[in-house]
Amino acid sequence: MTTPRTGCAIDAEGRITFELPAAPGHRLLLRLRPKKGQPEDTLHVLDLDPAGEGRARAVLGTDPELAEGRWDVYLLDGTERTRLRPGPRDLRALVDGHLRERQGPLAVRVPYVTKDGYLALRTWVRPAHAEAGRVDVTGGTLRFEARLHGAALSDGAEVRLRLRRGEGAVRTLEPLAAEDGRSFSFTVDDPTLDPGIWDLFVRPAAGAPMIRLARLLDDVADRKHVFVYPGATAGSVEVRPYYTVDNDLSLEVTRAG
């Protein structure tokens, strides 16, 4: 059987409608991709309903909340499953998602095409979120803009850079907050940063949990190789911002030259 192509459309609330050629007796299966060496243990099944003109439709509502990760999409016939290839994807509702106010906890879904050409969903679930915005590289200075969703800045707010390896050295910066208490900016121009990967967090208030800076609120499921920035040279180090495979914002620090 030829693998059917499945179109999908998502609305601003995260509701996804799948449409494919009619397949009587079949259902749609979403499978959370397990980590390497781990068993498959999270599945979600959707009914397929007739949609007219030889088509079938399934709707993934905002409830239940899908766990964070990558979900593969299959056509399910009893116990037999066939992984689905993508048809048209309507992601227009996601393009300006960073402009809308969100409350915590934040649940994000982005349909995308895998490297081997199959349909999948990238999902994130965060208690609160700091959406990374503009990144400016000028000389030896990096300037970052971001906006909080599900939290607001108050006394004791700080941006924290944490070295990923070793004992996890930390640098603390003071964010420059906008009048609304949600948008903020900060600069990085520290020539004493050790070489390695530094992850970026914001603590919105003294004693509050750290919030990872990331770019999640648009239609780009994997931005690591899409948003590529030059480095800034500060003293004897070069600092280059980049997005991880999870769309989190980090810094790669290397010896200049």
Rank of each mutant, 00 (worst) to 15 (best):
T254A: 12
F144P: 03
D63H: 06
A214V: 02
E13R: 13
A146M: 06
R55M: 11
L200M: 07
D11A: 11
L60N: 04
R89P: 03
A206K: 09
K36F: 12
L75T: 02
A205Y: 04
A151L: 02
P50D: 14
D219E: 12
R223S: 04
D41W: 08
G14Q: 11
S183Q: 13
L60D: 04
T192M: 13
T138L: 14
L213I: 08
G52H: 04
H149F: 15
R89A: 15
A51R: 03
R89Q: 13
F184V: 01
G87Q: 10
F18E: 00
E174A: 15
S250Y: 00
H149R: 05
L148F: 14
G52C: 01
E101Q: 14
L94E: 12
V239F: 01
R162N: 02
A151V: 01
V202T: 00
R126T: 13
T233N: 05
L217W: 03
D136A: 09
Q103I: 09
Y112G: 09
A107P: 01
A177F: 07
P191F: 04
L200Q: 01
D72M: 11
E158R: 14
L161E: 01
E174F: 09
D11H: 10
R33A: 08
H129L: 15
R164D: 05
E174M: 15
G139Q: 04
H129M: 11
G87M: 10
D116T: 12
R57G: 05
T114M: 05
A107F: 11
I197P: 00
P88T: 15
L29P: 05
R85Q: 15
T2C: 02
L20I: 06
L251E: 02
R171H: 11
V110A: 13
G61D: 14
D90K: 06
T172K: 11
T141G: 07
G97A: 13
P24F: 03
L176Y: 07
R55V: 05
E145L: 09
A256S: 15
K36A: 14
L163K: 02
G139W: 04
A152H: 13
L20P: 00
G166I: 00
D248C: 08
G104K: 00
D90V: 08
R92K: 15
R171I: 05
R81W: 04
D11Q: 07
A51Q: 06
P39V: 12
A205T: 00
R55F: 07
R55T: 13
E19S: 08
D96Q: 09
G7T: 11
A205Q: 03
R109H: 11
G133Q: 09
I16D: 05
L213D: 02
R33Q: 13
